[in-house]
Write a protein that binds this DNA or RNA. Sequence first.
RNA 1: GUCCGUGUGGCCUAAUGGAUAAGGCGUCGGUCUCCGACACCGAAGAUUGUGGGUUCGAGUCCCAUCACGGAUGCCA
Length: 582
Amino acid sequence: MKENIQQLLEQTVAILKQENILPADAMPRIQVDRTKDKSHGDFATNLALMTAKPAGKNPRELAQLICQHLPQSAFIEKTEIAGPGFINFFVADNALTDQLEAAYVDPDLNVTKTTSPQNIVVDYSAPNLAKEMHVGHLRSAIIGDSVVRTLEFLGHHVIRQNHVGDWGTQFGMLLTYMERLQQQGGEISMELHNLEKFYRAAKKCFDEDESFSTRARELVVLLQSGDAHCKELWQQFIDISLAHCQETYDKLGVSLSRSDVKAESSYNDDLQNVIDDLTQQGLLVEDNGAQCVFLDQFKGKDGDPLPIIVQKTGGGFLYATTDLAAIRYRKNVLKVDRVLYFVDARQSLHFQQIFTLAKKAGFATHAMSLEHMAFGTVMGEDGKPFKTRSGDVAKLADLLDEAQQRAYDLVKQKNPDMDQAQLKIIGDVVGISAVKYADLSKTRTSDYTFSFDSMLSFEGNTAPYLLYAYTRVASIFAKAGVAADSIEGEIILNSEQEKVLGNKLMQFNDAVNNVAAKGLPHVMCSYLFELAGAFSSFYEACPILIAEDQAVKNSRLKLAALTAKTLQQGLSLLGIKTLERM
RNA sequence: GUCCGUGUGGCCUAAUGGAUAAGGCGUCGGUCUCCGACACCGAAGAUUGUGGGUUCGAGUCCCAUCACGGAUGCCA
């Protein structure tokens, strides 16, 4: 509907130019907004305010002219000029009901798909395989996955890339520890069952035993030079670590699989080429033994130039090098239009540098959009970065177990008679959803506080509230004995609550497109929470199964069905499952 | 030092430069002989850190300033 008004205004602008009311070179950005206040109609535009100056007219007078030249449309019941020169559009009732009917019969809720599908790499999750995933890995995986789902829903071609860290110096230490275990006749795969413990044990040896640390440094060099023995140990470690990750993804409902892994090590053979390329272009400078690129726009302390170090003293490569190689791969092999990096905000300087350099060196085309989708830190309730009670970094797997256990207890408390298997299923979904939703519902860029109590609350903007709202709708159809997708009759919007719900249902399209454009899933969360609220008010005020007559009943059933479908689709774009009862 | 981010009712959180700053928690008061009250309805509660500026219009943009967090040459 917004698009329709936009088109009408574009036509109007063209007419006004022909009549010399607007200067021919005026190119106003036509902006149509949903109004906050019903008295201002359904949509408003500030077109007259924006073009008043170039037209040399006062805004209200110009608004008048715009309305007079506006092409006729069945969508619009009337227009009004308000305030300093806003034009308010009142949408015809049947236009809204037509849209609702269209959404009802469309499996994709009549969402406008993209007309120009892009190739988009989404670089997310990317844990370091040396250790087990911890709470710090939560946000990238959850938020990235939601944006992936949304982009795919709109028809884009998304390439998931899990840029796992499998090539750092810690691997020398880990391989040495594996070697020792092997020599002592230990069962490595058993020991690796608890990666965290394994890492700590290796670290202890590394710090305390000199022969160990010497061997560890040797093994790094051997590994990177392709030694078969090292490669074998390394591969064994990586396989087990990746299996751990996969378990976590599966439990979390993150749509990453083994085939999406594009590890750091896979760019290994290309790193020297990156250096050579930079050298050829005259971008590389040796400084204190390291190979650096200095870019004018990045200054350090006292205005000194800030280097991007791409090769260490002694020849080692750094993550800047790998990231550059990755960009080049994405340009040359994957031919992408857009790359989204879901990485901690603390790395924003790094990405600014890499993006600037990549464009300058031709590793990315200027048309390629490189976007750092930064996110804040997960805080504990003490306001400091989240830790367990013992002060350790919380293991992600443990955290998810606890969420599920707490959810199980809660649901059991509310449904004492429910059988255990059912409780388990519900608890698992509620627990995971709560963790994901708590993260997704806050603006990506800010820090957020991890709190089991608030995320598992049934009140407020939480997963349990939304899941509950969904089960209420679902139960109507169970009780009515009709299928949600085969309701006869037309939607009729009589009461205030029905109109509010109808309007809210039609805003799903905006929400989806906003999430895709900006990579901000909290927009979807806010929308779904508002939708659930609109439904609850409707549900209180408008009896459905016991409605006064059949036509009203069918109309309300349709609204309920559309609400259920929208909630389910929206939650699914967030990576959250729904339950039929809870 | 420099750069980046954040600062919104007691607490948490929202708002493509638009109209009266929107919700939630908590508080207070209502509503179940009625489709799931894990719900709904209502009330109180805000000069958007501070001071300037741009604009017809600023929580949003610019400058200054304060507070907190982060980054800042061989980890990622």
